[in-house]
């Protein structure tokens, strides 16, 4: 099987300071990988580099495109990369307001990606928007409301619907449950798990919450000072951590 994503020696510095350094890994179709580490560990920099939001100083990000097989997304032209960003890739931001158009109705938010890839039938767009709102458990009668009027958990679910409506194959998530109540988090996690399985999604989830990766991620990478210090099966890394830092990290949190 061809990996969906092959990351090779990604490095990015901010002047003399290391953002992330020499990160390599492979992600296979249907796999969910967690990246954990404390603030400043470089996990967000890495995610930005992978998702094409930040230009790394060195390295390759090979994505298995539908048409041409693996291609280095860093060498793609900007239009190609942006096209990828609204078809096969999705990005779920920590703050829904960064990933939603707050002045546009829920239906319009979900429909945008469809219209961006050329859908021009209002009825069809609306049907698909309603279907997706249902899948993320937002009632039909909220379709014309703006996300401003939604709760935090609902906004986050809307952001997920907006991202998944075009059937992407790879989803980047930056602290998707950050800032939500614990009960709301659980609902979101359950939803994400279901969608990942149903759609055969691959995902890369950056978080500092070990409980989130325990429930969502098959594999885990632990980052410190811009480098990956440990990686492996999620439960193995959490239950039998090898690296000094991972042991500290795992022992620092309440039992998960």
């Amino acid at each position: 099987m061809t990996p969906l994503l092959q990351v090779r020696d990604i490095s990015r510095s901010y002047g003399p300071r290391i953002g992330c350094a020499d990160v390599s890994f492979e992600l296979y179709p249907g796999e969910v990988m967690g990246i954990v580490g404390e603030s400043g560990s470089g996990k967000s920099t890495l995610l930005g580099c992978l998702a094409g939001q930040l230009a790394p100083d060195a390295g390759e990000v090979l994505f298995d495109t539908r048409a041409e097989g693996p291609r280095d997304t860093l060498k793609m032209s900007e239009p190609e990369r942006r096209m990828l960003g609204r078809t096969d890739w999705a990005f779920v931001h920590q703050h829904a307001r960064d990933g939603l158009r707050m002045g546009v109705s829920a239906g319009g938010n979900v429909g945008e990606r469809l219209m961006a890839v050329g859908e021009r039938h209002y009825g069809e767009i609306r049907t698909q928007a309603l279907d997706w709102l249902g899948r993320v458990e937002i009632p039909d009668d909220r379709v014309d409301d703006r996300p401003r009027a939604f709760s935090g958990g609902m906004q986050q679910r809307l952001q997920i619907a907006r991202n998944l409506v075009t059937g992407p194959r790879l989803v980047f998530m930056d602290e998707p449950t950050g800032g939500l109540d614990v009960s709301v988090q659980a609902r979101l996690l359950d939803l994400l798990r279901g969608l990942v399985r149903e759609m055969g999604l691959s995902a890369i989830i950056v978080t500092h919450d070990l409980a989130v990766v325990r429930l969502l991620a098959d594999r885990l990478m632990v980052m410190k000072d811009g480098r990956v210090v440990e990686g492996g099966l999620t439960d193995q890394v959490l239950d039998d951590p090898q690296h000094e830092y991972t042991q500290l990290l795992v022992s620092s949190v309440l039992q998960v």
């Binding site: 609204r86 546009v104 945008e112 990606r113 219209m115």
Partner: peptide, 14 residues
């Protein structure tokens, strides 16, 4: 990338 223009029209109809 003009999908957004249709979002405006979508909002109108909705």
């Amino acid at each position: 990338e003009y999908g957004l223009m249709h979002v405006k029209l979508y909002e109108d109809i909705s």
